[in-house]
Design a protein around this nucleic acid. Structure first.
Length: 259
DNA sequence: ATGACATATGAGATATGA
């Protein structure tokens, strides 16, 4: 099974690019973030035409996540447990019924957290704590689990072209990275880094500004975290970098694993 | 340095992003 995660920065604004990549790469499951539309406006018909069913947790203007799948989706969970007052649509989880391992797959859109001296940073840290708590529960099932999404976390200096640019940023602050490490310490494997332990210059985000793409000035912030039962099946992990060079792209590119 | 760029809303300017 090939599973992708992609922050599309508005599914409607970038629908052509999204459909083009689906037609080219033909992933079985795609976790989308920042769809920026309500459920009823999700372009479901376009994806059905490409043989995908969709589970959607949308929101107007901001955030919004979805899972596209060529296999049936069951046990859909919307919202990350742990704070009923959190109205932001940043989490959806489903069981993918492929008739074999039936993995649980999530689409996560972790808060950015900037500026760090605002209430946005504590919200990010609290959200990470909730994610860790939920991941701890899911790990107890001892089943194939793929925690995929836009984590808005640069795990280490190797994951940025110019780390010095990020030292005081919510994506790279020590408290952020410590929580990412805490999540990994539950026994989760960073799929891309596990298969490419020393690879730099492979990034999933390139800012629209200052010619970041042309300069190769990117960061690796989209991740697939695998339970042992999923990591055992891991065959490949690739960043579809070329998509960033297409006309009217998202600022993120897809990350694809085969399990 | 709050800017560059881009998106959504809504019809101008503002909030958000990373």
């Amino acid at each position: 099974m090939r599973v992708a995660t992609w922050n599309v920065n508005s599914v409607k604004a970038h629908l052509d690019v999204v459909a083009r990549w689906l037609s080219e790469a033909k992933p079985d499951v795609v976790c989308l973030q920042e769809i920026k539309c309500e459920d009823q406006n999700f372009p479901r018909a376009v994806f059905e035409e490409l043989n995908y069913t969709a589970a959607v947790h949308g929101q107007k203007t901001y955030n919004g996540v979805a899972i596209l799948s060529k296999f049936p989706l069951e046990n859909v969970v919307r919202r990350l447990p742990g704070d009923n007052s959190d109205e932001q649509a940043r989490y959806i989880q489903a069981t993918v019924i492929d008739g074999k391992s039936n993995p649980t797959i999530t689409s996560i859109y972790l808060p950015n957290g900037n500026p760090v001296n605002s209430d946005k940073y504590p919200y990010k840290l609290a959200w990470l704590d909730r994610l860790i708590a939920h991941a701890r529960e899911l790990m107890k099932l001892e089943e194939p689990l793929v925690l995929a999404g836009d984590y808005n976390v640069i795990p280490a200096a190797i994951d940025a072209k110019t780390p010095s640019q990020w030292v005081n940023d919510a994506l790279f602050l020590t408290a952020t990275r410590l929580r990412f490490q805490e999540q990994a310490a539950l026994g989760l494997t960073d799929a891309f880094r596990a298969l490419h332990p020393t690879t730099a210059s492979q990034y999933t985000f390139f800012d629209y500004q200052a010619g970041a793409w042309q300069r190769g000035n990117g960061i690796r912030i989209d991740h697939m975290m695998l339970s042992p039962q999923a990591a055992d099946k891991l065959i490949s992990a690739q960043i579809a970098k070329h998509v960033r060079g297409w006309e009217k792209p998202s600022d993120h590119v897809p990350l694809v694993i085969e399990i």
